[in-house]
Every structure is written in structure tokens, then in C-alpha cells.
């Protein structure tokens, strides 16, 4: 099957900076794909390479089997939802949404009808006569989405789509985006630095660092079996264990990771386990996060709120199941 988007050893240099460095990537049709990474990791440049705003310095990109290098953005059936929405301030909402159809020469009545439908799809019916400046952040986001979707793109690109929204709206939009993607069966590629967003929305996640892809996998794979220390550190609040520590428990001298929720905290000091001192506690609502000091190694554990906690400074024993200790590919 042809990939929706395929990168073959794609690099993009800005002067001496390798923004994207020999990336191979395949995104399946109809997939909800996340590019996750810190700022400057190359994820946005990858998105811009797909949109056509950037051209690769080397390597090749194909979109649904067609070569994309040298094809300008306006000839690609790919649309983008920009980070700050990039709505045209001098046009009203309806003309913004109908813009793509207007430049393609679709008649006025037909493009306005399609734009109204798209606005209904993002639950903003009847907002057509307003100016973008009169809308809230969440509404602008929906208009930007409608403006892209009205063109029926083969691939929809979303650049930090929820970055500017507050928590409540963000959670709402996460669900809506996911439902929309399922209903329309369009390939969605979205860029984010928020690992929670990537894990909760995407079918697959690519973790970027310094212009390279560190790991590609389902959210479960990325979260539970990080390939490298960087992925374990970036994707979650995972405990990263040095090779010496891992060797004692698994017999292999490799870096390991252990999820905070996999650690059990026992107040008795007479059983087998890792001896640690409680440094501080952090109330998170449903859970409590404990910071522990195990002979110089800083560990975090989460326990359900409501259990009786040891006092700060108290000595405790930490235990965990061996199968929860994940060994990473990175050696000592």
C-alpha cells in the first residue's frame, strides 16, 4: 500500500544547522500521526516540508506516491492548520473558510454553501459574518480547521493546534479532533511538544530530537518501552535508571526505565527492596507524587491519594515487579 507521506533520508539544513537530519518516515493513509519533540527538534520543519513551505536539502518526499520536491504549496492537495491560525484579518469568517475554493474558481453560491457546511462541521454554524478579531481563541481554532477541511485535503497538517488554548478547551478539542479524523478518514499529521496530547490523540507517535527521529510507535509502545533515555525522559515522568542499578535487578548492564506508578512504597524497612528516603510530596488530585532519594539516585513514585503517607525524611523500602523494569536499547 502507498504511504500517505513518505520521507526517504530527508535532510534540511539552514546554513550549518541540521534542522532535519536524514529522516526516514512512513505515514499510513487515514492515520492520526503525531510528531512529538522539544522546540528545535525538527518536527515543525518536517511538517513544513510536507506542506511545501520548505524544500529538502537532500532526500526525497512523496505524498500518496507522488514526488513532492519542487512542487509549490499551492499545487499540493495538503492543507495546514497554523499554530496561531493565520486567519485573514480583512476577510470575514465565511470568506476565510471559502478562500481555498475561491482561488480555485468555485462559484460564489457553491463555495459559500461548502463553507457553511464546514463551519457546521466544526460546530460554528452562523458565525460567517464575523471578523476573526471578534472570535475567541477556541473559535479561531475551529475556523482555521474549517478553512483547511473545506478543501478536502488528502493530508491535514496541524502545527501545535491546541497550544494556545486553555486546559479545558484543549481537552474538548482533543476529543473533537479525534472524532473528526475518524469521521472524515483524512490523514492527520500533527506537531506538538505536549506528550500528553500526542499519547491521547495519535495512532502513532514519532519522537524527535536534534533533527532525528528517536522512536516511532504506538502511544503504548512509546510510553511503556522507550528506546532511549531521551524518549523515556521526554515522553513521561519516567524514572531513568543507570546501568549499575539495572544490572543488580536484571543482570544486564543497560539503561532502564521504570514508571512512577510501578513503584510500591513500603513503610517497613525490614524487607527486600530499594532503600530510599522520602524528600517531598506533591499533591496531584487523584494521585500523590513522591520524590525519593535512593542513595543519591532521585526516584519518583505515584500513589493513589488517600493512602497513609510516610513523613518527609522517613526511610522507606521501594519494590516493583521485574517485568515493569524496561531495558532500553542504549547500552552503558
Amino acid at each position: 500500500m502507498t504511504s500517505a507521506v513518505s520521507f526517504t533520508r530527508v535532510s534540511r539544513y539552514f546554513g550549518a544547522v541540521r534542522a532535519v537530519d536524514a529522516v526516514d518516515l512512513d505515514i499510513a493513509p487515514g492515520e492520526f500521526f503525531a510528531m512529538l519533540g522539544p522546540s528545535g527538534s525538527g518536527k515543525t520543519t518536517c511538517l513544513r516540508l510536507i506542506a511545501g513551505f520548505e524544500q529538502p536539502s537532500s532526500g526525497s518526499i512523496s505524498i500518496f506516491g507522488e514526488r513532492a520536491e519542487g512542487v509549490p504549496p499551492y499545487r499540493r492537495n495538503v492543507n495546514t492548520v497554523f499554530q496561531d491560525y493565520a486567519l485573514f484579518p480583512h476577510l470575514n469568517v465565511l470568506d476565510n473558510v471559502a478562500y481555498g475554493l475561491m482561488v480555485k474558481g468555485v462559484g460564489r453560491a457553491e463555495r459559500y454553501r461548502a463553507a457553511e457546511e464546514a463551519l457546521a462541521l466544526v460546530r460554528l454554524p452562523g458565525y460567517g459574518t464575523r471578523r476573526p478579531g471578534e472570535l475567541s481563541g477556541g473559535q479561531r481554532q475551529r475556523v482555521a480547521l474549517a478553512r483547511a477541511l473545506v478543501n478536502r485535503p488528502r493530508v491535514l497538517l496541524l502545527d501545535e493546534p491546541l497550544g494556545a488554548l486553555d486546559l479545558k478547551l484543549r481537552e474538548e478539542m482533543q476529543e473533537e479532533l479525534k472524532a473528526l479524523q475518524k469521521a472524515l478518514a483524512i490523514t492527520f499529521v500533527f506537531v506538538t511538544h505536549d506528550q500528553g496530547e500526542a499519547l491521547s490523540m495519535a495512532d502513532r507517535v514519532a519522537v524527535f530530537n536534534e533533527g532525528r527521529i528517536m522512536q516511532v510507535g504506538t502511544p503504548q509502545e512509546i510510553y511503556q518501552r522507550p528506546a532511549t533515555r531521551f524518549v523515556a525522559d521526554f515522553v513521561g515522568s519516567s524514572n531513568i535508571l543507570p546501568p549499575d542499578f539495572v544490572y543488580r535487578w536484571s543482570g544486564q548492564k543497560r539503561w532502564g526505565s521504570l514508571r512512577p506508578e510501578a513503584i510500591r512504597v513500603n513503610r517497613s524497612v525490614n524487607q527486600e527492596g530499594v532503600r530510599a528516603r522520602l524528600v517531598s510530596t506533591n499533591y496531584l488530585g487523584a494521585m500523590i507524587r513522591l520524590a525519593l532519594d535512593a542513595d543519591g539516585l532521585r526516584l519518583h513514585a505515584t500513589v493513589p491519594a488517600g493512602v497513609v503517607l510516610p513523613a518527609e525524611g522517613e526511610l522507606v523500602t521501594l519494590t516493583f515487579n521485574r517485568e515493569n523494569l524496561h531495558l532500553m536499547e542504549e547500552g552503558a
Binding site: A51, G52, F53, P72, P73, Y74, R75, V78, N79, T80, F82, D84, A86, L87, F88, P89, H90, Y99, G100, M102, V103, K104, R147, A148, N151
Partner: peptide
Amino acid sequence: VPANLVEASSDLGASPGQTFRNILLPL
């Protein structure tokens, strides 16, 4: 005029000439 308005116009299928007439010149 934010640079990304020009990009957005191009992304939505407008040729450079159309972007000039519809976005740059009015703004």
C-alpha cells in the same frame, strides 16, 4: 502583515499572483 498569512494563502491553493491580489495588497 504576518508572514504566515502569505503561507496560509499559498497553502490554500492561491498562486503568488492571487496571494498578492487577495492578501498582500488589501493588507
